[in-house]
């Protein structure tokens, strides 16, 4: 009998924990705040005191991240490569539906460059075009990318695309070029101006963006309280993009 009571106590505690966690996430993930990203003066170098990161609560993403993907497309102008076959089209970000083979538990989440602390794409790039900024943003320097695609072979998240054709009408803030590799750059042009990444703005109630190195930032507080899972955490890459609800 006492054993059953013990089980009951554990169960109630677990339910209570989930409820408190849900409330807490509601409190913390209340809205995106522009103050999470202070503007960087143009004459100041990028600092490694900052580590930009993103926490995505997939239970709050009612559309599975579709709005985030669309915002990314609009911001960077990808998604319309008329000559390329579907499997050749660039996709900086996509929604992935995941279903556990045993339990059939299913969820959808947005997947893009995870901005690893130890990015395999940076390790393998022969010219250093695939690079990590001091503030943790992983991106491609398209001026020195030779288009060898080794970074695409190395990325565990399939986050990178190769531009298979010449492009027109590009966004001035996000130039793309035939024969180079590209991927999510956390909207580096916006961050440097003190703005949030476009995808974060598109999902204000489900995503926190901010400085993971600042213990007082909202994202640090949130991951400390609620956790934040990494995709393929087993690879030890320490990603800057974290998820709640995996």
């Amino acid at each position: 009998m006492s054993q059953i009571n013990a089980y009951r106590r554990k169960f109630m505690a677990a339910v209570g924990g989930v409820a408190v966690g849900g409330l807490a996430s509601g409190v913390i993930l209340r809205s995106v705040e522009a103050s999470d990203v202070p503007a960087k003066p143009a004459d100041q170098p990028v600092s490694n005191k900052v580590r930009w990161g993103m926490l995505i609560d997939i239970n709050r993403l009612t559309d599975g991240g579709v709005a985030m993907v669309e915002a990314c497309k609009r911001e960077h102008g990808w998604g319309n490569d008329p000559k390329s076959r579907p499997e050749q089209q660039s996709q900086w970000m996509r929604t992935v539906k995941v279903t556990d083979k045993l339990t059939q538990h299913s969820f959808t989440l947005p997947v893009m460059c995870q901005h690893c602390e130890e990015p395999p794409c940076v390790d393998v790039c022969p010219t250093g075009a695939s690079m990590k900024r001091a503030d943790g943003i992983v991106q491609v320097n398209k001026h020195i990318c030779i288009g060898c695609r080794y970074c695409m072979m190395a990325c565990p998240y399939k986050a990178r695309s190769f531009v298979h054709e010449s492009l027109t009408d590009q966004r001035p803030h996000s130039p793309r070029g035939m024969g180079t590799v590209e991927s999510c750059n956390l909207c580096v042009h916006r961050i440097d101006k003190g703005q949030l990444p476009a995808c974060v703005e598109a999902a204000p109630n489900a995503v926190i963006f901010g400085d993971l190195n600042d213990p007082n930032s909202r994202i640090s507080q949130a991951v400390k309280t609620l956790g934040g899972s990494q995709i393929r955490a087993d690879l030890g890459l320490n990603t800057g993009v974290r998820y709640l609800g995996l």
Partner: peptide
């Protein structure tokens, strides 16, 4: 897990 996406995951 089974995964699917527009990017052929």
């Amino acid at each position: 897990a089974e995964v699917s996406s527009s990017f052929f995951d």
